[in-house]
C-alpha cells in the first residue's frame, strides 16, 4: 500500500530524511518510532504531498505523490501533529466541511458522521464549538474526521502527544477497531515505545533521518539483545538529549503557548 525507496529530503545543507526505504502492506498498522527531530513529520509530509522529496521514490496506493497529487490525496486521511480543526466551528460543522471538500455524497452523510462521532464518543457534543473542547476531544474529532471519506490509508503524526493515558488508550482502541472494520492501512509516528509495541505490527526506528532498525517489537528486542523496547530504543538511538534548531512551526508553537492558545 505504501512503498518508499531511497527517500531523501534536504533543507538547504541539512538532511532531515536520509535515504529511507520501507514498505507498508494493506491493512497493516505500521509505526515510525524516533526521537524529536528524527525526520518523522518530514517523511509524513512527503508521503502526503505537502513536501517535495529531494530524491527517491514514493508509491501511495499505486500513485506517486509528486505526479498524481490528486489521486494520492484521495487515498488517505491524516491527523497532523499540530491541530487542524476550525475552533470557531462546531464538531459537526468540522465533519461536514471535510465531507464537502472530499466530495462525500450527501446521501447518508449525516448517518456516517453520526456513526463516527458516536464511535469517538462526541455525538452528544456535536453542536459545541471546538474551541470549548479539551485536547483529547479535539484529537478524537480529528481521528473521526480522518476516517470520514473511507480512505485506504490513515496517517497519524504523533496522535497521542499531550494526552492522558486514559484518552490515549481509548484512542488506540478506536483506531484499531476502525483498522479492522474498514481495513484501513495505518501509518503512525510516535516517540512512545510502549505505544509502538502495543499497537503496531511492524516498527521502523528512525534517527537523524535514517532508519536504524526495523521489524516487530520482538525482533527489535532480539536484534539489540535487550529486555524491553525502551532499552532497545536507547541502544539504537543513544542517550544524548536532542537539541534541534527551531523551525518556523516550532517558533509558532511556542508563540501559541505564550499566548495561552494550546490544543
Amino acid at each position: 500500500m505504501i512503498t518508499v525507496t531511497n527517500l531523501t529530503k534536504k533543507f538547504g545543507g541539512f538532511t532531515a530524511v536520509d535515504d529511507v526505504s520501507f514498505d507498508v502492506q494493506k491493512g497493516e498498522i505500521f509505526a515510525f518510532l524516533g526521537p524529536n527531530g528524527a525526520g518523522k513529520s518530514t517523511t509524513i509530509k512527503m508521503l502526503t504531498t505537502l513536501l517535495h522529496p529531494t530524491s527517491g521514490k514514493i508509491d501511495i496506493n499505486g500513485f506517486d505523490p509528486v505526479i498524481h497529487t490528486h489521486e494520492v490525496r484521495q487515498s488517505f486521511g491524516i491527523v497532523f501533529q499540530d491541530p487542524s480543526l476550525d475552533d470557531e466551528l462546531t464538531a459537526y460543522e468540522n465533519m461536514y466541511f471535510h465531507a464537502v471538500l472530499y466530495k462525500v455524497g450527501t446521501d447518508g452523510l449525516r448517518e456516517r458522521i453520526r456513526q463516527l462521532l458516536e464511535f469517538v464518543e462526541l455525538w452528544d457534543k456535536k453542536d459545541v464549538l471546538v474551541k470549548n473542547f479539551s485536547g483529547g476531544m479535539k484529537r478524537r474529532l480529528e481521528i473521526a474526521r480522518s476516517f470520514l471519506h473511507h480512505p485506504k490509508i490513515i496517517f497519524l503524526d504523533e496522535p497521542t502527544i499531550g494526552l492522558d493515558p486514559q484518552t490515549r488508550n481509548h484512542m488506540w482502541n478506536y483506531i484499531k477497531d476502525l483498522n479492522r472494520e474498514e481495513e484501513t492501512t495505518v501509518f503512525f509516528t510516535t516517540h512512545y515505545m510502549e505505544e509502538a509495541e502495543r499497537v503496531a505490527g511492524r516498527i521502523a526506528v528512525i534517527d537523524h533521518g535514517k532508519i536504524v532498525a526495523r521489524g516487530t517489537a520482538a525482533e527489535l528486542k532480539r536484534q539489540t539483545g535487550t529486555a524491553n523496547l525502551e532499552d532497545a530504543f536507547l541502544q539504537l538511538t543513544g542517550r544524548t538529549i536532542r537539541e534541534e534548531e527551531a523551525s518556523g512551526a516550532d517558533r509558532m508553537r511556542s508563540f501559541a503557548q505564550r499566548r495561552g492558545i494550546r490544543r
Binding site: 502526503t48 488517505f76 472530499y102
Partner: peptide, 18 residues
C-alpha cells in the same frame, strides 16, 4: 493565513483532493 495553515483548518484543506 500563516496561522491557519500551520494550526488551523486550512492545513486540512491543503491535503484535500481539490
Amino acid at each position: 493565513m500563516i496561522w491557519d495553515r500551520q494550526f488551523g483548518f486550512l492545513k486540512e484543506t491543503m491535503v484535500a483532493p481539490v
